[in-house]
Design a protein around this nucleic acid. Structure first.
Lengths: 235, 235
DNA sequence: TCAATAGTGTCTGTTAGACATTATGGA
DNA sequence: TCCATAATGTCTAACAGACACTATTGA
């Protein structure tokens, strides 16, 4: 499928090292939607000016995969991501490195607006309006978003998209952003109460107009082994 | 971590080819539990007699990843698996090939007892009583089982563990095997009815003692976009 | 006072699980 | 006949969503 490419400049293939890359899709939640961290494309033959790409590094077999992904993420984000998980291996489509294989990771950053000076020229883009990406990286972003949605109702992953201290409205916003639809406020809080995942603080924060919102902190108490019945919820 | 191994016999490392493998965990459902297909370990220096391993092949960058996994599975199973999905990339622990990286796949076979002559010397082992495996392959099996559980309530994947025609008790057994706990019969059937995933046939099958069970076929009719509320079901 | 947001109480329809009952075969 | 399994109807407790209402701030 791919035409035989000349081994381009900086792709130094060391025998014994896999011809593969580690790519990281770093997501953050903002009021307007999820945003993705991109870095300026390395200047290669194919790259005209102003292109962007997912942070990636060539895979080095010595270092553990996750460690390398974490380093790659930290390099672009400025700090280590609050959460990191492998999405999977991708081999279809072109990659900026022209590598045959790429391992994608999902990284989460807590509320990018505050702090987290994105390294060098890295920039955040709204997840619904991304600049053109290499086909393989485009697929990896899709996989990362899907993984985030999957994890959301199995793992308290939403809290890694929020600062230490947050309001329940903020928490609900994150869930709505990731799930892609709005939730019932009373039901959301009831379920949250039942799960006892958060601890209220004796602090309130006023934001714009209305009544100030109480602040909460992530503090899971119960370990519940609830066995739900089967749901045949095929999509 | 790994001591410097001499490049052992059959590991021909071609420069430009990733030093990686594709491994497949092929599962089937039996009344006693899930079973896993293993093949005799390739005779290498480390292998004493009677060891087993997951079917694997060295990764060839030209071929698409899934295609190669499917071929690897078919070689061990005799036929193509009814379902195949990537589990992820594994790099920790030793692999029979001593490769730095392995991509794991989950394969499903419909009820192994009937037909499906396992290729050559391949053998089924109960998933709870596996023979010793290379550490990395052991992890891959765990990942494959976890993925199967994850997929079960999102995708009608259970039907790929059953023959074309089955009884509702068989279907429930598969769900119970994969989920690891028993389900309420009436509730199970009610939910199944509501999802309209199966079509009853005008055939009954008597099995042992009691009343004969009606046979069903997988036939999803509705495409439902039901939006459930959030569940904070952290395990 | 009005607008806007936070937070809560009540009602109702849905549903999962418990239980009981009928149906239908083999031993 | 008895036993084992299939299949279904009814009841109840739990729960999700709708709705309404109070609370508390800024404009």
């Amino acid at each position: 499928m791919t035409p035989a490419r000349p081994a381009s400049g900086p792709s130094r293939r060391v025998p014994g090292q896999p011809d593969a890359t580690a790519d990281v899709a770093i997501l953050a939640a903002e009021p307007e939607g999820l945003s993705l961290l991109l870095v300026p494309a390395r200047t290669t033959a194919s790259a005209r000016g102003g292109r962007w790409e997912l942070p990636w590094t060539p895979l080095r077999p010595k270092a553990p995969l996750v460690a390398q992904a974490r380093r790659t993420a930290a390099e672009a984000l400025g700090v280590a991501p609050a959460w990191l998980e492998q999405v999977g291996a991708f081999d279809k489509g072109r990659h900026p490195s022209d590598s045959a294989l790429s391992i994608a990771f999902l990284g989460l950053a807590p509320e990018r607006r505050e702090g987290t000076a994105a390294g060098r020229q890295a920039r955040w883009f709204p997840a619904e309006a991304l600049p053109p990406l290499a086909p393989r990286q485009r697929e990896m972003v899709g996989g990362a978003l899907a993984l985030l949605r999957e994890r959301l109702d199995v793992t308290p992953v939403a809290f890694h998209l929020l600062p230490e201290v947050f309001t329940l409205s903020q928490l609900q916003e994150v869930y709505e952003l990731v799930l892609g639809h709005s939730l019932h406020k009373a039901s959301f809080r009831r379920a949250l109460q039942a799960a006892s995942l958060v601890r209220p603080l004796a602090q309130w924060r006023t934001e714009g107009r209305g009544r100030p919102a109480q602040l909460y902190r992530y503090a899971p108490r119960k370990r519940r082994g609830i066995r739900r019945g089967v749901r045949f919820d095929i999509t």
